[in-house]
Structure formats: C-alpha cells, structure tokens
Amino acid sequence: MIPDQMLPGIFAALMGIAILMYAILDGYDLGVGMLLPVDNESHRDTMIASIGPFWDANETWLVLAIGILLIAFPTAHSVVLQELYLPIMVMLIGLILRGVAFDFRAKVRQGRKQDWDMAFKVGSFMASAAQGFMLGLYVMGFEMSVASIWFAFLSAIGVVAAYMLIGATWLVMKTEGALQSQALKWAKKALRFCALGVLLVCAVNPVVSPDVMNKWLSGNGLLVMAVVPPLCALCFIQVWRSLGHSEVLSDVRCHRPFLYVLAIFVLCFVGLGFSFYPYVVPGQITIQESASAPESLRFILIGAMVVLPCIFAYTVFSYRVFRGKVTELRYY
C-alpha cells in the first residue's frame, strides 16, 4: 500500500503529465488553428482535416489537468482559478469558438464558411495567448505589478510561438506538396520566436524568484542545469537542421522536426516543474499543504491506475487508425 505522504507527490506527477500532454496535443491543434491562411481555402480544409479526429480527445487533457488540480489540491485550485479569472474567461471563449467552428464550418452555407474559419483562427489565438499569459502570471507568483503583466504578455507571445511551431511541424509531418513547404516556412519563423521565449523565461525566472534561484544553484539543481538547458539547445538546433533547405521533406524525414519539438516541450516542462516543485502556487502553497484527504486520493488513484493505461492505449490506437498523410476529411 502506498503511504499517505506519497500521495500528493503522485498526484502532482499525474497533474504534470496531464498538463504536458495537453500542451503538446492541444498545442499542435491550436498552432494549426492560428496558422490557418486567410486566402487559401483548400489549405484550410486540409489543415483542419489533419486535426479533426484528434482535437476533442486532446482538449480532454485540459479537463483532466484542471480536474486533478481540483480533486487533489482543492485549496490551490480555488486560489489559482480566482487569480486567473479573466484570462481563463478569454481562454474558454477562445476554446468555445475554436471547438464549435470545427463543426459549423462544414455545415453552414458556403458564404458563412469563411467566417467560421476566422472564428477558428481567432479562437485558437485567444486560447493560446491566454494560456501563455497565465503561465507568465504563474511564474511571477500571481503578483499584480506592471512588470509582471509585461512579462505575462511576453510569455503569451512565447507560448503562441511554441504552439505555432509544434503546429507547423505537425503539418510538415501530415501534409504534402505546397502546404508542406508552406508549413516548413512557418516552422522556421516560429522557431526563432519560440527560442527567444524560452530564453526569456529562463532569464527572468531566477531573477524574480529567489526560491527558483536557490533551487537552481543547489546540488540537484546544478545537475539539472547541466543536463536540461544544453539538451534543449541541442533540440532547437536539430529542429532547424531537420527542417532542411529544400521545398518539401520526404516521408522518411518529415517526422523529425515534430519529434524534436516534442522533446523541447518535454524538456521545458521538466525545467519548469523542477523550478517550482514542491509549490503548486509559487511561493505560497505547497502540494503537501493543499492536498485532499488521503482516503479521497486513494479512491481516485485506484481508478487512475486502471484507467490511465487504457486511455494511453486507445489514444495510440486512434493515432494508428489515422496515421499517414492526411486525406480529405470524410464522415464515412
């Protein structure tokens, strides 16, 4: 049996996995949404078709992440959600617009399709920017100063760029021809902004938070610092190299950029997670302080141990069913 004091750590890890899965999976959805070209309907159709079978399940990771925060760390949940009331509202309205546009665009009169595509793009942008903004506020410990708002805006740009990067590399993997070469261009552009964003967060984080600084300079911290940032830098270089200089990528090479971006997401997340552990609200609430009653955590953990592997299994199955280059999205 698992001892009570281990439960908060286990749930923090589960929540971390859910947030990371969300950032990667809905990250590429939202990235593709933001990249929708205004002037090319057939590209828009293909791009949306490439995420059509997946977006709904991808978005569910957000519900799981917020669910674990709610279930396992209820007091932190109320603090975080009340602090972030307005950006959450922007994000939710963005997600609503994006989600319904998927279906409306395919079903309304021809003239209205363009409008829903714009709703798709704007909704994706709202959701991504709001998430980046929230990340910024979170890093700053929800401090409401001019400096932290500025930082949150920069963080929003960083997250938008990161999502565009993963979205563009997703398209490189899933599409061919003219759209693929367009995606290669988008990826290269987004890569620069994304690298800048990551550098910025790394630079600001220890300056604003002495806790983070101490953490980085501790024994384990130096070890992590010696591994994660160089690896991350290597991945950035590899993304750039794998995008290549030709107009299109062969079917063998087209997966590489996406996989390297995936590695960047994982490394950044490990870095962030390490910097803030054991805090769930930076500098205020630790995971131990805000954890729910052990009997409740244990009840949910039993289910999670059975269900989460199943979720991973059928997610993999679904990606296998829809593997390969995207074809026209047909209902039958």
Binding site: A57, T60, S318, F322, Y331
Partner: peptide, 23 residues
C-alpha cells in the same frame, strides 16, 4: 468528477474520432 473525466470523457472523445471519420 475525476471518474467522469477518466472513464467517460476520454472514451467518448477518442472513439468519436473513429466514429465520425474512420468508416
């Protein structure tokens, strides 16, 4: 709520993709 997310939401969302586009 957690059991709802874990047992229901992922199940319906993932298989919805196959149901709609996988024929």
């Amino acid at each position: 709520l957690g059991y709802e997310v874990m047992t229901a939401f992922f199940l319906e969302a993932t298989f919805l993709g196959i149901m709609l586009f996988g024929t």
